[in-house]
Amino acid sequence: MSLTVLAPGPLTTVQDEGRPGQAALGIGRSGAADRASARLANRLVGNPLDAAVLEVTLGGLAVRAEADLLVVTTGARCPGSPHDAPTLLRAGAELRLGAPAAGLRTYLAVRGGIAVPPVLGSRATDVLAGLGPAVVAAGDVLPVGAPAAPLPGVDLAAVPDPAVGDLTAAVLPGPRADWFGPAGWSALTGQRWTVTSESNRVGLRLDGVPLERLRAGELPSEGMVRGALQVPPSGTPVLFLADHPVTGGYPVIGYVTDADVDRCAQLRPGQGLRLRAG
């Protein structure tokens, strides 16, 4: 069983739950940027939650089924897609995703999972580290695995679509919040940040009124995890997503809560982000 890629759209990668447990070797976790949507897609077609799916950025993916395949999409809703509703794609049939009206990343799960060879225990493409399968390209024939569990018998999942306007996410203090003081925290949580076009799977680069440090000096590199709001010398934070570096040398003022990071991964350039003290 396989799926042939006719067109990848702007960026499509294979993703799963990533590579936990190897950060001490400099190997980041990676995995789906919007984990909740990827897991939902897997659940809807009866896959284990760590099965590999396709992460499609701004639609545009076109594939052809080379066997009868049960497929579903979640996350950003694309015209022409079997969204939140598992659908049989007959052998020879094509699936073409239009551009989503809301959200950035669409997850396409196939019953049996995308079965490309794993690298260091995962099929996730880490765009920062250059690990995992190559970015999906036209002409790729993606193998599909054997079903691992019975179908869940769910016809339709009722989940809200990603936000169109501003998103509000909960933020908790980070290890270096004291480098910015109460005024810095107020500035972080009191303004509307704009997602810039420099954003990617590594992180969301935010634009706004720069945060001011209370202290000078360098920070020895320290470990960080998804959700970190790191403040480089420019004063405008980067919200780290799936392919964040394992360690960083700029202070982390706060962390978007784990659940809300997934929603942030659906933000497009130009959208607003408000950080509410959680």
Partner: peptide, 9 residues
Amino acid sequence: LPSGSAALL
């Protein structure tokens, strides 16, 4: 030191 809802530094 606090590091969000899923980590501790």
